[in-house]
Amino acid sequence: MMKWIQVLWPSFLIAGIGAIIFFTVVDPQELYFMGEPVHFSLLATYSIGFISLWIICAASSLLTIFLQQGADELNKPQSN
């Protein structure tokens, strides 16, 4: 549970703030996606933008908790 929280929650907060700032400054109708103008509805663009940011931030959080393991945990003999 705690690991889920640590990965999903900070990334959610930052993705929310990031999406608000990004879409305030950038009008999604002026964006290009794979070389073509974005043709999704605005709400879809906002949602996809937010979710993508969330996934990116979560990946960063995941790497953080992965690298946070101490030497003890990595050196621990296999228990089986």
Partner: peptide, 8 residues
């Protein structure tokens, strides 16, 4: 180490 490895 305990609170890190074994969360509550």
């Amino acid at each position: 180490q305990v609170p890190n490895s074994l969360y509550e």
